[in-house]
């Protein structure tokens, strides 16, 4: 599903070159769940951005769903994201001027789909926000905002979901709730999941953990832990 080969990313600032990722290679298979962990500044978010086609690598190749991102321009990558990719962000990244329902409708509208309202409503009901459809982000709690974000991420039936610290801005209880939902929806849809997190407990819930340090892969291990079933029931 995702193939990263010899990818490096360097930035030039003030005449100095800073290497954030250095010769990274790994692959993620279909329906696989992967966590990327590591200390601050290790290059986790940069790797996520490159993998999702939000930025270009300095060297190396990235293939998403069999398509090489290096050959695409920004607009072509946008279309690819809209067709195959879902996102969840630490700070939710909901459009503040759109209601919860509209936020979920946007990716579907961009695809030119029909009956988008019904699909968005269904997804919001699935994350327990059936009664908050017409609320604006500012009228929702952090947990609720992240659930809207989750519904939006799954709206276009993505082949791969990228999540950047999805519980980073939530309290423990809400974090567990949201994490449960992510894994549950992911399992139901058979989506590949790439998760960037500091939270080792959350990382342990994925099937594989890639640990980054100073721009390099420090370890790439399989995890055996699963999300507890009682948390799934709280959906």
């Amino acid at each position: 599903m995702l193939k990263i080969e010899k990818v490096s990313k360097t930035y030039t600032a003030g005449g100095r070159t800073l290497t954030v990722l250095d010769n990274i290679s790994f692959q993620v298979g279909e329906s696989e769940t992967v966590s990327i962990v590591g200390p601050s500044g290790s290059g986790k978010t940069t790797l996520l951005g490159l993998s999702a086609g939000l930025d270009r690598s300095s060297t190396g190749t990235i293939e998403l769903n069999g398509v090489s991102l290096g050959a695409l321009d920004e607009d072509e990558r946008a279309v690819l994201r809209n067709q195959y990719v879902g996102f969840i962000f630490q700070n939710f990244q909901l459009l503040p001027t759109l209601t919860a329902l509209e936020n979920v409708m946007v990716p579907l509208e961009l695809r030119g789909e029909k009956h988008v309202r019904a699909r968005a409503r269904e997804l919001l009901e699935q994350v327990g926000l059936g009664d908050r459809l017409h609320h604006y982000p500012a009228q929702l709690s952090g947990g609720e905002q992240q659930r809207v974000s989750l519904a939006r991420a799954f709206a276009n039936r993505p082949r791969i979901l990228f999540a950047d610290e999805p519980t980073g801005n939530l309290d423990t209880e809400t974090s567990e709730l949201v994490a449960g939902m992510i894994f549950d929806l992911n399992r139901q849809a058979g989506t590949t999941l790439v998760l960037v997190t500091h939270n080792l407990d959350l990382a342990a819930s994925t099937g594989r953990i890639i640990k980054l340090g100073k721009g390099h892969i420090v370890s790439d291990e399989t995890s055996l832990r699963e999300v507890p079933s009682d948390k799934k029931k709280t959906l």
Binding site: E74, V79, R81, Q83, Q93, L94, P107
Partner: peptide, 16 residues
Amino acid sequence: VSDIAILRCLGLKARQ
């Protein structure tokens, strides 16, 4: 800027 970046993330083209 941040709203536009989100929309771009969701697949909105630059021209759109």
